[in-house]
């Protein structure tokens, strides 16, 4: 597979390490009320779509960027790749 790295252009997927669902970005606050349940859902509940899936890939043999790659699980078509840090900021994460 080729992954369209937003900074480096198309790169072979062999350069990357796969993690999984990009929802792992949405880590709950451990000090919040009901954190145990929130963390349980965060860590163990995943959608498993037949279709577009946002997932985390780490450019381990490259620039060490974490990317959010949108891939169609039925065809392996990749419709986009963004820096995970940009996605995280867009989802309201900061410090």
């Amino acid at each position: 597979m080729l992954i369209p790295h937003p900074l480096l252009g198309p790169r072979d997927s062999q350069e990357f390490t796969y993690l999984g669902d990009a929802r792992l970005i949405d880590r709950p606050d451990g000090l919040a009320e009901g954190a145990l349940d929130l963390f349980h859902d965060y860590l163990y509940l995943r959608d498993n779509p037949a279709g577009l899936h946002q997932e985390l890939w780490f450019h381990e043999q490259g620039d060490r960027s974490w990317l959010v790659v949108t891939r169609d699980t039925r065809t392996h078509e990749i419709v986009g790749a963004e820096l995970a840090s940009d996605v995280a900021r867009a989802r309201g994460r900061s410090k």
């Binding site: 880590r27 995280a88 994460r93 900061s94 410090k95």
Partner: peptide, 19 residues
């Protein structure tokens, strides 16, 4: 060593991007 580094980059970039 490799897995820990990968994990730390995940935390840095995906969880706390502005730290």
């Amino acid at each position: 060593a490799v897995g820990v580094y990968r994990h730390m980059e995940f935390c840095r970039q995906c969880l706390w991007p502005d730290l």
